[in-house]
């Protein structure tokens, strides 16, 4: 087992290094796609922490990214604060809002969180459009970049670091005792509560961390685009993050990563034919959520399982239970 573990680690490290070197051989356009994909990795992985591991659906994940983006952007553009300090402030603010929304509705259960986060994202929209003197409304707020010199390569590494940080936080959480509590709460709330798991606390914690990570992703993204528009906290964005997670595989660690890269790259290809990617992803996501709720990862796994069983017991019919 140890041998295999070390081998896997080496493979992972080699893959990461290869991935980190990849943009050197790519043009500006493809570098951009990779950066956007990494943004979606952060978003989908943190949404998955909540939906996939605690079974709570937030429709305000894009709104929390918007809070991060606008907080950091306004601080940098209007008050001249260093963008990195702004990113930290944006993350913190998203965490605070996540905590408040969390304690407001998580003791009431799933449906209330979904409703309230949807309302939250609508409030944010109204505020952004009404306070156009500060946010510039739909015109968009111009913000400075993270670095004095604009370089796609540098942004790629910043986003790679952000994505690794997000994945690291998610991994640590789900592989800790807390992660065990997450799944216990998802599987059977009452049983978990009877064994001394503080269900509300676990959910609020997951929601706060997930919102903070979204805030960080949004703040970084705003300083990459240099223009913050209400598109960042929009429902379309929320939908993309959700379908990336659902199609990739909700409740699995790699699912959102696969979904984020797969859908972002695909949407660039579909865009050549017009704005059909939302409809196409929607139909695929509907089919996946309905017929393969574990997503691509689940499909791969069951195919692999079947093959392995067929290899071990050639006489058995190749069907998994």
């Amino acid at each position: 087992m140890d041998m295999r573990m070390t081998k896997n680690r080496w493979l992972l490290a080699a893959g990461l290094v290869a991935f980190a070197l990849l943009p050197w051989g790519l043009g500006v356009y493809h570098q951009h796609i990779m950066i956007v994909s990494l943004f979606y990795v952060m978003m989908a992985a943190s949404w998955n922490l909540l939906a996939g591991y605690t079974g709570q659906v937030s429709f305000g994940h894009a709104a929390f990214a918007g809070i991060g983006a606008y907080a950091s952007g306004i601080l940098a553009a209007k008050a001249g604060v260093n963008p990195w300090v702004g990113v930290a402030a944006g993350t913190l603010l998203a965490a605070i809002f996540g905590f408040l929304v969390g304690i407001l509705c998580l003791k009431l259960g799933g449906i209330y969180l979904s409703l309230t986060t949807l309302g939250f994202s609508e409030i944010l929209h109204i505020i952004i459009n009404n306070e156009y003197e500060i946010t510039r409304g739909t015109m968009g707020l111009q913000v400075p970049g993270l670095l004095s010199e604009y370089s796609k390569l540098a942004y790629f590494y910043i986003f790679l670091a952000g994505a690794l940080l997000t994945l690291g936080v998610v991994y640590r959480l789900i592989h800790s005792d807390l992660g065990l509590n997450f799944r216990a709460v998802q599987n059977d709330e009452r049983a978990a509560a009877s064994l001394g798991v503080d269900v509300v606390k676990v959910r609020v914690l997951a929601f706060t961390v997930s919102s903070a990570l979204a805030g960080m992703a949004g703040a970084l993204y705003g300083h990459y685009l240099l223009l913050i528009t209400p598109q960042i906290p929009s429902l379309d964005q929320q939908f993309l993050v959700l379908s990336m997670t659902v199609i990739g595989g909700m409740g699995s660690f790699v699912g959102p990563v696969i979904g984020a890269f797969g859908l972002e790259i695909l949407s660039e290809y579909i865009r050549a034919y017009g704005e059909y990617h939302v409809l196409a992803f929607g139909l695929v996501a509907l089919a996946v959520a309905r017929f393969a709720p574990r997503g691509m990862v689940g499909i791969f796994r069951s195919v692999w399982e079947r093959r392995r069983q067929a290899a071990v017991h050639p006489s058995l019919p190749a069907e998994s239970p």
């Binding site: 659906v57 799933g110 939908f239 659902v246 939302v278 409809l279 509907l286 959520a289 309905r290």
Partner: peptide, 27 residues
């Protein structure tokens, strides 16, 4: 077609109807 298979699993009915709303909007 969509809601019936999710009975007892609130998570998926929320997700499915949300995706449905976006699909209908883009249609």
């Amino acid at each position: 077609t969509l809601i019936r298979p999710t009975y007892g699993d609130d998570l998926y009915s929320l997700i499915l109807t949300f995706i449905l709303s976006i699909v209908m909007q883009s249609t």
